[in-house]
C-alpha cells in the first residue's frame, strides 16, 4: 500500500549477499569462509553506525538458511525491543535452547540457530551478565551475533566468548561508488559536488549518506542533484560563513562575531551543527598555534555537553566565541 517512492533506499539497496558488502574485506573474507565450511564461532561486530554491521549479520543468515528457514532459525532483537533481564532469562533462553529442525536443500543450513542482538551496547550490565551462561550452554545449537557501536560497553566475559570484528568507517571512494550505483537505478543525475558533500556530511556513515541522497531527491523533486542540495538537506552551514566567524574571532571583533552567530541561529541552523563545524574549522586552521586550538576545543567540548543537557544555544556558543577571541588574540 505504500508507494514505491516511500520505501527507504537504505532498505531497498541493502546488500543481500556477504560479497556485496563493501570496504570490510577482513570481515567479508572470514564470513565467506564460514559459509563454505558452515562453521563459525560467536561473533562480535563493532564499529560506528552505518558501516554494515546489521547488513552483514542479516546477509549471512540469509545465505545460510534461505528465505524459508530464515524465520524459524534467526531471531533478531534490537534496542527498540524490550531487553531487560527478564527477556534474556525467558525469550532469549527459550529461543537458544530449542533444537533445530530439518535442513532445506540448496542452502548450507548448518545445525544451529542464530540470535542477533543488535545495538547490544544499550543492554544493561545485568542483562549482559545473564547472557553469559546461556551463550555457553547452548553453543551447540545457537550462535550469537552481538552488534554494537562501542565494544567497551560490552562486558568482558561476553567479549571474550566471541570473535571480534571491527567495522571501519567508509572512505569517500567506496561511498561514491555505491551512491553512483543507487543514482543510476533511481534515474538521478548527480552533479560534481554531490559525492564530496555526501562523504563529508555523513562522516563515513553509509546509511546517512543514502538517506541524505533520498531526502534531497524527494525534497527538491529534481532528477539532477548538486552538492548544495545535499548540504541544504544535511542542515549544514556554508563553509564561507564558518570561515568568516573564525576570521572575526581572529581579529578579536567580539561584537561582530556575536552578531554573525546570531544571524546563523536565526537562519535556523542548529546550535550543535554550528559548534561542530566551528570546532572543525578551528582544528584545521593554519593561523592558530596548538595551544590556542586546545583552549578553544576545551570550551567547545564544555558547550557541547551543555547543549546536550538542554542549555540555550546562543549563550553557550557565545561563550565559545568569547574564548576563541581571547585565545586567538593571545590573552
Amino acid at each position: 500500500m505504500a508507494s514505491s517512492s516511500s520505501v527507504p533506499w537504505v532498505e531497498k539497496y541493502r546488500p543481500r549477499k556477504i560479497g556485496d558488502v563493501s570496504h570490510q574485506e577482513e570481515v567479508v573474507r572470514t564470513l565467506q569462509k564460514a559459509l563454505e565450511t558452515a562453521n563459525m564461532p560467536h561473533m562480535l561486530f563493532y564499529g560506528p553506525p552505518g558501516t554494515g554491521k546489521t547488513t552483514c549479520a542479516l546477509a549471512i543468515c540469509r545465505q545460510l538458511y534461505g528465505p524459508d528457514l530464515f524465520k524459524s532459525r534467526v531471531l533478531e532483537l534490537n534496542a527498540s525491543d524490550e531487553r531487560g533481564i527478564s527477556v534474556v532469562r525467558n525469550k532469549i533462553k527459550g529461543f537458544a535452547s530449542t533444537a533445530v529442525g530439518q535442513a532445506v536443500p540448496g542452502y548450507p543450513c548448518p545445525p544451529y540457530k542464530i540470535l542477533i542482538l543488535d545495538e547490544a551496547d544499550s543492554m544493561t550490565t545485568d542483562a549482559q551478565s545473564a547472557l553469559r551462561r546461556t551463550m555457553e550452554t547452548h553453543s551447540k545449537v545457537t550462535r550469537f551475533f552481538i552488534l554494537c557501536n562501542y565494544v567497551s560497553r560490552i562486558i568482558e566475559p561476553i567479549a571474550s566468548r566471541c570473535a571480534k570484528f571491527r567495522f571501519k568507517p567508509l572512505g569517500s571512494e567506496v561511498m561514491s561508488d555505491r551512491l553512483k550505483h543507487i543514482a543510476e537505478r533511481e534515474g538521478l543525475t548527480l552533479g560534481e559536488g554531490v559525492y564530496d558533500a555526501a562523504a563529508k556530511h555523513s562522516g563515513g556513515d553509509m546509511r546517512k549518506a543514502i538517506t541524505l541522497l533520498q531526502s534531497s531527491a524527494r525534497l527538491f523533486g529534481a532528477k539532477e542533484l548538486t552538492g548544495e542540495d545535499i548540504i541544504a538537506v544535511a542542515g549544514a552551514i556554508a563553509e564561507d560563513d564558518v570561515a568568516e566567524l573564525l576570521d572575526l574571532c581572529g581579529k578579536n571583533a567580539f561584537d561582530r562575531a556575536i552578531g554573525k552567530l546570531d544571524v546563523m541561529l536565526r537562519d535556523g541552523f542548529p546550535g550543535l551543527q554550528i559548534l561542530t563545524q566551528f570546532a572543525d574549522a578551528v582544528t584545521n586552521s593554519e593561523n592558530c598555534s596548538d595551544g590556542v586550538k586546545a583552549r578553544i576545543c576545551l570550551a567547545a567540548a564544555e558547550a557541547d555537553k551543555a547543549l546536550i543537557d538542554g542549555s540555550d544555544d546562543s549563550l553557550q556558543l557565545g561563550a565559545v566565541v568569547s574564548v576563541a577571541c581571547l585565545a586567538m588574540s593571545g590573552k
Binding site: F254, I258, D312, L315, Q316, G318, A319, V321, S322, C325
Partner: peptide, 19 residues
C-alpha cells in the same frame, strides 16, 4: 569589551546550571 567576555563566560556557566 573585556567585560563582555566575562559576561559571555558567566552567562553560559549559570545558564547551564539553570537548565
Amino acid at each position: 569589551v573585556e567585560l563582555k567576555h566575562e559576561v559571555a563566560k558567566h552567562a553560559a556557566f549559570f545558564e547551564r546550571r539553570l537548565a
